[in-house]
Design a protein around this nucleic acid. Structure first.
Lengths: 132, 132
DNA sequence: ATCTATACATACCTTATGGTAACTGAACTA
DNA sequence: TAGTTCAGTTACCATAAGGTATGTATAGAT
């Protein structure tokens, strides 16, 4: 995979196989999707383990079914740990892994970059009346 | 919006309104989704305008319907330009805008970061047999 | 008169995603 | 005995996303 911009300053990532390329794209897609990003964000803010119910409360608008799915996927990707304390009623705690934390930093960086250029995006949407 | 990691080194982006925050997240989601990312990538590689059919050929697996939708969305977001040459048969050319190019650089940077850590992600998925 | 090329639009269908609501299990409580 | 808690699971339904196939407009070529 080669990427070059118009000014020719861009060219890397040639050592990846197609499979690796696809996997990286998939992770990017997953990590920047709506629910996973918000869940990881909440877990990062907590600075420690959170019970299922606490996450459910703090991720506004998510249903418990989708939260379960999301957390399981994050766990499978090594971004979150799940710890079951065999009590009654059960206690399950979720926590961001170091890998998850690092990934979140990167994604939030991109999100930040976009936020800084929001005026540009908004400007790009406007020009209806004043065509050149 | 505040984001802090476990080591407390992370805290910014507090000046955004909720609306701006949501918009930035939305752009992030859109930009890192499957088709938009691949289309932008093709357009970046082309280093210039591409006709609709050329894009369709190069974005493997996309249907013409979805490509049309994707390009229109990218255009509405100010990431690509659409130029219609009123010939018969029609000629339409698409090109990355500077804003689109910049965004792609950022997203590809994240994608690169992920690619560099693929071993970590793969390792995170493995540990089934050797639990601690 | 028919065919071709281009960039779509449209109708129709399948799949995926996500939401709601009800159910579970087991111990503790009233 | 019935109710509560927690972390789900399950069944069911609505919406969205995406695929396939076909239609359209127009001018030039055959």
């Amino acid at each position: 995979m080669v990427t070059e911009l118009n000014d020719g300053t861009f060219d890397f990532c040639e050592t990846l196989t197609d499979a690796e390329d696809a996997l990286a794209r998939e992770m990017l897609e997953r990590a920047s999707a709506k629910w996973p990003l918000r869940v990881m964000h909440i877990l990062a803010e907590a600075k420690g383990p959170l019970r299922f119910s606490r996450v459910l409360e703090r991720v506004e608008g998510i249903s418990q079914k989708v939260l379960t799915q999301t957390l399981r996927t994050l766990e499978a990707d090594g971004l979150v740990t799940r710890t079951l304390y065999p009590q009654v009623p059960p206690r399950v705690e979720y926590e961001l892994t170091p890998l998850g934390g690092e990934l979140l930093v990167e994604v939030v960086g991109l999100w930040q970059w976009i936020a800084n250029r929001l005026p540009d995006f908004e400007a790009a949407r406007k020009p209806k009346a004043d065509a050149v």
